[in-house]
Simulated assay, not measured.
Amino acid sequence: MEDGLRITWIGMAINLLLGLGKVVAGWYLSSKALMADGLHSLIDLLTDVAVIFGLIMARRPEDANHHYGHHKFVSLSKLFIGGALVVFAGGLLVTVLIDLRTGRGAPKAEGAFLVACLSLLAKEGLFWWTRAVARRLKSDLLMANAWHHRMDSISSLGVAVALVAVWIGGADWAFLDGAVTLVLGFYLLLEAFKIFRRACDDLLDAAPEQEIIEDFREHILQVPGALAYHDFRVRRVGDVYEVDLHLQVEPELTVERGHAIAREVKQQMLEMHPEVSKVLIHVEPANDEHIKQSGIFDVENSPPGAIVD
């Protein structure tokens, strides 16, 4: 996770420089779109702080007040990122609508265009770098921050395109400065809502995507002695997953042997999926009382009367 902290600190420094530069340049060059783009970069500072906070807190071990660890601080940080973006995008849309209605002069497009291009290159590079680190660490929080950088680079691209049109067309095309900002505002609002909703799902223990669940399930019945299972549940806790299930074994096995089978199932899942932090297994005898019709069975070794999904 050191790489995750490092790239976030670098992003934080870049956002500070770009944000201040674009706000000052936008004010001096009379470009509302460039100022809005600069404010977006400054808000990115808050989200970078949230990412750093989440990554640091998630590393803390369980304690007397947090029996299940601190991984949900990552989800809390994602909630803050999404919420901050929703507020920013909403305020941006209101401001642009007011400006379009009242009208304003044309921006000094030449200088503003160069600033927007510099921002585009910096933020696009930061997106690819952060995304690579997020994929390597399988960090949903870092991936959210990476797409935050991509949103900023797209914002700068839109601003640059509008400023080129104003540069070439003159005052008659000045409305594009606000029109592009309006389009970008709606896009930012949509992406912010996705991040916010995903964080809410995590905090409310919503099940992850079905393909993730199926990927975890495939390792259970591969273990010798694991005959069936049911009540298989997965939840995302920050950037990791927790799994629990009821595992059926032969009724005649000793407690020690049943425990050994469960331990092997757990080890298989943890070794194949480093993103899984905990696996809780309840061992049951595979008899009529415990076999569930909704369970998953080893067809060849399932007990008599077992119903296979």
Rank of each mutant, 00 (worst) to 15 (best):
D3L: 13
I14F: 00
L17K: 05
G21S: 12
G21P: 01
A25R: 11
W27T: 15
M35P: 01
S41P: 01
L45G: 04
L46C: 15
T47W: 00
D48G: 15
V49A: 15
V51F: 10
R59M: 08
A64K: 14
A64V: 14
Y68H: 15
H71D: 11
S75F: 09
L76I: 15
K78R: 03
V86W: 01
F88G: 04
G91R: 06
D99Q: 13
G105N: 05
K108A: 13
E110K: 02
A116W: 00
C117Q: 10
L118N: 00
L118D: 02
W128A: 13
R136S: 14
K138Q: 11
L142D: 06
A144S: 06
N145I: 05
A146P: 03
H149Y: 14
S156M: 05
V161C: 05
L163G: 02
W167H: 11
L176V: 05
D177T: 06
V180T: 12
L182D: 08
I195F: 00
R197M: 12
A199V: 00
A207V: 10
E209L: 11
E209W: 02
I212K: 13
I213W: 09
E214Y: 10
R217D: 07
L227G: 04
A228V: 01
Y229R: 01
R233V: 06
E242R: 06
L245M: 12
E252I: 08
L253Y: 00
T254P: 07
V265S: 00
K266I: 01
Q267C: 09
E271Q: 07
M272W: 12
P274G: 02
I281F: 01
N287E: 03
K292P: 08
V299I: 15
N301G: 06
G305W: 09
I307R: 15
